[in-house]
């Protein structure tokens, strides 16, 4: 347990010195601003595109548009940027041989997996929360309407989805010496889950619901209880996948 804690501190230092924390902060602050900004500009841009002489009937943007933009940014680019950053976390150390010294000094291999998972997940939460808070601030300033009453219910599922998505990246990273395996594994899993979602009946159980239904949760047209099965499946698969990662590293030649 102590070893895991020491390795967590090493991981945090690494993220800081490798500029990963900095990049995540900058990128997700940008995303936080972009949501409300795009919502606000879209009518103007459309107006310019159709020519300024014409006056077309455009509904005024609402807080829903801002949040829609936020979740689009998060689930289409944001989480992939995070996954690219985490992708090499184990493979890189195995390829370089940096773990040899520490393992012979008594660092258990499961501690490596646990520490890396925890630090990656902390960064996931940091990124999502930061963008969320900024987006929230601007949205309530520019769109003080009551169309999105349940903003927190929309955000929690994204954090829970991170549990699984980060675990998959870590597993991918523990399987190969290639730095891109973690990223690839996550992308493949995401695609598979999206395809499964075409069968509407599985929707409640598919973890992908945690990143597709957010806007309905915010509006209140869908209750969190509807996707509860997906939440449980996400948490259980996370534990299985972390266990597999620990096994994978256990028999890895360092």
């Amino acid at each position: 347990m102590k070893a895991t804690w020491f390795f967590i501190r090493k991981e945090l230092l690494e993220s800081w010195r490798n500029y990963h924390l900095l990049i995540i902060t900058v990128v997700f602050v940008i995303f936080g601003i972009e949501g409300p900004l795009m919502a606000k500009l879209t009518p103007d841009i459309l107006k310019m595109a159709t020519g300024s002489g014409l006056t077309i009937k455009m509904p005024d943007p609402t807080s829903i548009d801002a949040w829609q933009q936020y979740y689009k940014n998060m689930t289409q680019i944001g989480i992939y940027i995070l996954v690219v950053i985490f992708s090499g976390t184990i493979s890189n150390e195995v390829a370089q041989g940096t773990l040899v010294n520490l393992v012979t000094k008594g660092l258990p291999r499961y501690s490596v997996v646990m520490a890396k998972y925890i630090v990656a997940y902390i960064q996931w939460c940091l990124a999502i929360m930061m963008a969320f808070l900024i987006s929230w601030g601007y949205t309530s300033y520019y769109f003080p309407d009551n169309r999105s009453p349940h903003i927190w219910s929309g955000m929690w599922p994204l954090l829970i989805f991170g549990l699984l998505f980060v675990a998959i990246t870590i597993l991918g990273s523990s399987l190969s010496k290639s730095n891109y395996m973690g990223f690839l594994t996550s992308v493949v899993v995401f695609i598979v889950l999206t395809l499964l979602n075409l069968f509407k009946s599985t929707g409640r159980y598919n973890p992908i619901a945690l990143v597709t239904d957010n806007i309905y949760l915010i509006k209140g047209t869908e209750q969190i209880s509807h996707i509860m099965p997906a939440i449980w499946i996400t948490i259980i698969s996370t534990m299985v996948i972390i266990y597999l990662s620990v096994l994978s590293l256990k028999y890895k030649k360092l």
Partner: peptide, 22 residues
């Protein structure tokens, strides 16, 4: 309305965005 107007109308959004990106 032109590009400049769009930016001046939304300064609180654009200023931090430009600072960060630059």
């Amino acid at each position: 309305m032109n590009n400049a107007d769009i930016i001046t109308n939304n300064l609180p959004l654009f200023i931090p965005l430009i600072i960060l990106e630059v």
